[in-house]
Design a protein around this nucleic acid. Sequence first.
DNA 1: AAATTATATTGAAACGTTTCCAAACCTATG
DNA 2: CATAGGTTTGGAAACGTTTCAATATAATTT
Lengths: 333, 333
Amino acid sequence: MTIKDIAKETGYSIGTVSRVLNNHPNVSEKARKTIMEAVDRHGFILNVSAKNLKTVQSENIIIVVKGTFNELFPVMVQRIQMYFRETRYTLITEYVDEEADEVTRARQVCLEKKAIGLLILGGNKENFKKGFDRIKIPAVLVTNHAGDWGFENLSSVSTDDTEGARKAVEFLLENGHRNVALLGGTVGSDTSTQRRLGWEKAQEDFGIKKEDFGPQVGGRYSFEAGYEAMKKLLKGDKKITGVFALADVMAIGAISAISDAGLSVPEDISVIGYDGIPIGAYFCPKLTTIRQSIDRICDRSCEILIDRLENEGKTRHEFIPFTLDERQSVKKI
Amino acid sequence: MTIKDIAKETGYSIGTVSRVLNNHPNVSEKARKTIMEAVDRHGFILNVSAKNLKTVQSENIIIVVKGTFNELFPVMVQRIQMYFRETRYTLITEYVDEEADEVTRARQVCLEKKAIGLLILGGNKENFKKGFDRIKIPAVLVTNHAGDWGFENLSSVSTDDTEGARKAVEFLLENGHRNVALLGGTVGSDTSTQRRLGWEKAQEDFGIKKEDFGPQVGGRYSFEAGYEAMKKLLKGDKKITGVFALADVMAIGAISAISDAGLSVPEDISVIGYDGIPIGAYFCPKLTTIRQSIDRICDRSCEILIDRLENEGKTRHEFIPFTLDERQSVKKI
DNA sequence: AAATTATATTGAAACGTTTCCAAACCTATG
DNA sequence: CATAGGTTTGGAAACGTTTCAATATAATTT
């Protein structure tokens, strides 16, 4: 069943059928009705390949997701999928490993799939510097701020990680904690860097000298890494009363480790997380955390991309406000 | 940059270039080398639209995901994405709402995208009965057993939900619990039905009469629903010592509710879950649960689909073994 | 060296659309 | 009633591939 068959059946030319299908003006009401009727009757569907062959452009948008152990990203991908479900675009998901170069991979996939737009979940600046200028299509960096990266076709939507982290640590400090450990972070991850910076700033604001900063233990954003990092921290000699985990999943891992060590949260140690994943509200104790509006981040990213695609909107670099969700895992001392 | 340019540049015909690109036999070493060299030099990429136009078939596989509040599915989707990353296929994800008819939607998308294979995450039998026979391409039902549904082109990979649930409830019964509540389930969900059946069987095996079965409260698989359902249960008059939650997320919601009610798990009430989501191992108390090998379910689903696509393998209906992960949320009484 | 066979290459049609130009058809105006 | 202007339609080229029949070239056999 092709456009040609419809043409033959209705007695119109294929040109006319095509025009009807594409809502072109200059086609009579009568023709439109006859043709649409035939189309519906046969459940005819346009051959996208043939269409793209002519129009060159596809309607593919690629989302490149970096890092595969994250609990947050799959949910964000889902949200973004749902967003595009309502549009005429096709979203193609491409996962890349933590260590891989997401920009090179993105470029490759974009060429293969003839993508017209690009979303990147969790990229890092180093890789962008190396290769982003060769990506010609509009792109949005989701979750990372790229305001000062200086790329022409790149937008970004994120929370202000430094401020968020600062707020988290300040909250701990206001509650009397003085030795606030930092849990998590991997080299080359921009979110880690930003959040660590916030941790430092907050301590400086409270007049803590650099040599008196709490201890740090790195690790990727996962339950397991949080658990292990906390175990290491508990073995350390410094007495810790507060922990700032760079991600909720780490916070949860950490609480689990604390509890396995026979201590309790928040009685012995207070823990604050970052992200605002749903489980946090049901965890025992309920997790105090900096909540990013991931739904809004996702939606806004999609909006910006589509605006640029369809209305030639400018690139933007937006911060979505975060909130401190005060629950049970932090205690005043 | 098209195949034609490559042809012109190397002096060969476009036919020859095409054959080189497709690894056809009957092309000289010399031609192959010259052409590949030019291809690499220009970073030439075949136009998929043009290719598909001729070959008719795409290499698209659709995954239809039913239900959007689930914590398990996004992770499974990710796993499946990763699987297909290594293949020549393109996976297109399509989410449908809990109430929607996944089969009709699947058919529609398959036509639009000219898909050659289909994966369905969380379908139900009623919808299949209505419309699956009109789907002509190989499909695999992931997570539900369809052995007796009688569809020609449908495979399925799942755990034996009835047996898993029975095992869970037996475990509670063996630990001395006699009034085991059932938490969760929505009408029309096949997994719920199967698991409820297991709950009934286990009680029968222990000689409990139907009128003495524990109470049931329904709800979708989410933290929140688990929380609410448990709250309702706690208000009931029957004294409950054990709870079987149809999904880990519900179990976690339930534990949270129990704890908010001033009781504790497992001291006052034992809870067992189903699924084996990662957080379970880090929750406090650590969640005892029936763990499905979701990775293996995913991988096996993909394998079966591809086997059918490429080697005309038969349809299969496989059970992947589950395990009882005994942790801390169940106590002997 | 000629005849036969196997291998390598070419040329052209076909896939299902879109789009542009020209032709045909209206309708209103002078 | 002829003409202009606008609207509607048809026809054909073009998009970048694959594929197949036909041809050219090389290898093998006699």
